[in-house]
């Protein structure tokens, strides 16, 4: 079983790296880019069969370590 966790900055939190990415894309001529936000994708390999139980544990991992609730939100996809 795998969990894919997308960690991203909350709306309203300034993202200087995303702004730099948008700036670089503009320099390359991609003027249609109006904003860029940079996040993280974390993939976990998990033992066990029960996807719901596993997801609850992954949610706990996100709250305790993988995301910082002050600045970040996250979403979990089980596969």
């Amino acid at each position: 079983m795998k969990a894919k966790i997308h960690v991203y900055l909350k709306p309203g939190v300034l993202d200087p790296q995303g702004a730099a990415v948008a700036g670089a894309l503009h320099t390359m001529g991609y003027d249609e880019v109006t904003a860029a936000r940079q996040g993280k994708l974390i993939e976990l390999d998990l033992s066990g069969e029960d996807s719901d139980a596993a997801k609850a544990r992954v949610d706990e991992m996100c709250q305790k370590l993988l995301a910082n609730p002050v600045i970040e939100s996250y979403s979990i996809k089980m596969a």
């Binding site: 300034l14 200087p16 790296q17 730099a20 910082n68 002050v70």
Partner: peptide, 17 residues
Amino acid sequence: LTESGLLPGSLMRNAGL
């Protein structure tokens, strides 16, 4: 200390990168 919750807020990448 912020990551542990002992202090409020967070330290992010410098604005000038």
